[in-house]
Design a protein around this nucleic acid. Structure first.
Length: 594
RNA sequence: GGGGGUGUAGCUCAGUUGGUUAGAGCGAUCGCCUGUCACGCGAUAGGUCGAGGGUUCGAGUCCCUUCACUCCCGCCA
């Protein structure tokens, strides 16, 4: 007979009544009746009720046992009487009558209760993560994560992708996020960087002729955290394919996502073929390149409408003369909403740092008119035109924002979410995926006024490469795409630029000389000049996928051992100081603290 | 770097307009209880009200500074 258990805590059923069994686990809960004691024993698989009474010589000893003590229980599986069956647990028809027990691991007084639906501060949860992880919800989330990753691996294998590991210690790259740096002992004064993503390696794998690569890849970026962004490290399903166009990548990822989301969630997929929205359309209609398509509200541009002489909205007209734009959000059939609703939105918008949202409702008595604070500025004819432009109808409300383009985009983007939430328009039981495509290669840096790469410097420009006109770089689009679900950016990818000459030209526009490129991207630029296949890929974020599947708002709920917002591991005490000796070996000295 | 929220018993929280000895539930300890499954009942212990300073006859409560956690902006090719 096995030493610790013959069954786990979710194995025992009616069919085993009468058997002698051993089960091991944690004391989840005790219910002490003085002369009769119930113990819920818990392990990874489930809970079994065990029972002991005062006839057993060791009754008092077990009665005093702390919750979360690890014990081995030996006893007999017995039937529960009809009235005492517990339908909430799978083993609820039976219980184990305790003959003997052994303490396998004692437990001090708990800093946080394990068996409870209460919420606790992140601080205490992260410090005692091993206790927190015993709790049902997060325990299940982590198991879900494991299953999702296995599923993805198996699907990728079926599709003919090969899984490879790429280096963790690599070189710092000048573009993108801040690097985590690791000093080199053998090369004093030099540093490795942890990879922000295996970007160059996966392209080198294609150049090496492996055709299809994937990896559940750790990525390291030294940037500040958000609820959906772990500080420091996260995981991507990194993949790359040779001899493909954009559509080939979409095809693989779309099918994979549909399978994963159908397999691991009961929510509906609104689109099994994901809509493709151009970057510029997304910025216009949603104000962001990560729109939540569950939200039916659409933004329209009304700048030109304000050229009409029968609109007397002077403040907006003056701003437009100075280069501002006007865009709107229409809410359907909101004429009967109380004044406080509209003023609340305006007040909220001001709190967000904008100049607020003007609004009026379109009504019709004898004629069509605008009702509300700024409604009087619009003639009937101008309202008819507005309704044509925005697809608004009688009874709808028009919210207006006027300002610099990026300001208007920003406020209307969050206003779109806010208004939809207030009106209850977002269906939580749905997943809405989409592709954002046709990203510009370059953008203007607001501060330096210089041209810089807007996303990935390795993306292939769209159009006929031989006839590419580089004289107007800001108009160039790339085969660069993002996948977005419910307003969360899951990943970005691209068809890569595998032509060294073209790459030099593009880097030149962003201010990198040939020497810069040769030095900073030596591995890759060199490889591309020895016969590189056309290739492309993408890298969906694993943590965010699991977050969506687990219906969690915070990435730490699907991360086993996360760091806190200040990038500290409260359980392991990282980061920590190091010894003088370690510093010396690394040829480093620290500046004196202020 | 900036803005918001939170900080009171081991845990989750309440604490009125500034006013007597700062409370509750869970947990802990002790006692009672043989069918519970959030078992029940009784008692006890447990507090630098995040820290420091100020206003006041008097501060958990008001003011200033600061720290921690968290959400957001910046940042995240």
């Amino acid at each position: 007979m096995k030493k610790y258990r013959t069954h786990n805590c979710n194995d025992l059923r009616k069919s085993l009544v009468g058997q002698s069994v051993k089960i091991s686990g944690w004391i989840n809960k005790k219910r002490d009746h003085g002369n009769l004691l119930f113990i819920d024993l818990r392990d990874n698989y489930g809970i079994t009720q065990c029972i002991i009474d005062k006839d057993n010589l060791r009754f008092t000893e077990l009665e005093k046992m702390q919750l979360e003590t690890v014990v081995k229980i030996e006893g007999e599986v017995v039937n529960r009487s009809k009235e005492t069956i517990n339908k909430d647990i799978e083993t609820g028809e039976i219980e184990v009558s305790i003959k003997n027990f052994e303490v396998l691991g004692t437990c001090k007084e708990l800093p946080l209760p394990v068996f409870s639906d209460q919420e606790y501060s992140e601080e205490i949860r992260l410090k005692y993560r091993f206790l927190d992880l015993r709790r049902k919800k997060i325990h299940q989330n982590i198991i879900l994560r494991s299953k999702v990753i296995s599923f993805i691996r198996s699907e990728m294998n079926k599709l003919g992708f090969l899984e490879f590991q790429t280096p963790i210690l690599t070189s710092s790259s000048p573009e993108g996020a801040r690097d985590f740096l690791v000093p080199s002992r053998l090369n004093p004064g030099k540093f490795y960087a942890l990879p922000q993503a295996p970007q160059q390696f996966k392209q080198l794998i294609m150049v090496s002729g492996f055709d299809k690569y994937f990896q559940i890849a750790p990525c390291f970026r030294d940037e500040d955290a958000r609820a959906d962004r772990s500080p420091g490290e996260f995981y991507q399903l990194d993949l790359e394919m040779s001899f493909v166009e954009q559509e080939d990548v979409f095809d693989v990822v779309e099918k994979l996502m549909v399978k994963v989301f159908k397999n691991f969630s009961n929510k509906n997929l609104l689109f099994e073929s994901f809509p493709k929205i151009t970057y510029s359309d997304a910025m216009l209609k949603y104000g962001t390149d990560k729109p939540d398509l569950r939200n039916p509200l659409i933004i329209s541009d009304l700048t030109k409408l304000f050229n009409r002489d029968d609109i007397s909205f002077k403040i907006f007209k003056d701003l437009i003369k100075k280069g501002s734009i006007v865009r709107s959000i229409i809410t359907k059939n909101t004429k009967d909403k109380p004044r406080s609703f509209f003023d609340g939105i305006d007040k909220w918008a001001k709190e967000q740092g904008s100049s607020g949202l003007a609004y009026f409702t379109i009504e019709k008595n004898d004629k069509i008119l605008g009702k509300g604070p700024v409604g009087k500025f619009f003639s009937e004819e101008s309202l008819v035109e507005l309704m044509k432009l925005t697809k608004a109808e009688i009874g709808d409300t028009v919210f207006l924002s006027c300002g610099k383009q990026n300001e208007v985009e920003k406020i209307l983007s969050i206003a779109r979410t806010k208004i939809a939430q207030d009106l209850g328009l977002i269906r939580e039981e749905n997943f809405a995926f989409c592709w954002i495509v046709d990203y510009p290669i370059f953008e203007l840096d607001e501060i330096t006024k210089k041209i810089k790469f807007s996303h990935n410097p390795f993306s292939m420009p769209q159009g006929d490469i031989d006839k590419l006109d580089l004289s107007n770089p800001l108009s160039l689009k790339a085969y660069q795409y993002d996948i977005v679900c419910n307003g969360i950016e899951l990943s970005s990818g691209a068809i890569r630029n595998h032509i060294p000459d073209l790459m030099y030209k593009l880097f030149d526009i962003a201010g990198y000389s040939k020497q810069d490129v040769d030095q900073k991207f030596s591995g890759m630029i060199n490889a591309l000049s020895y016969g590189a296949p056309p290739h492309g890929g993408i890298a969906p974020g694993i943590d965010r996928i699991v977050m969506l599947l687990a219906d969690e708002k915070n990435i730490r709920e699907v991360t086993m051992f996360p760091m806190n917002q200040n990038a500290q591991d409260l359980m392991m005490n990282a980061p920590s100081e190091i010894s003088e000796n370690q510093l010396k070996e690394l040829n480093l000295s620290l500046k004196a603290k202020k």
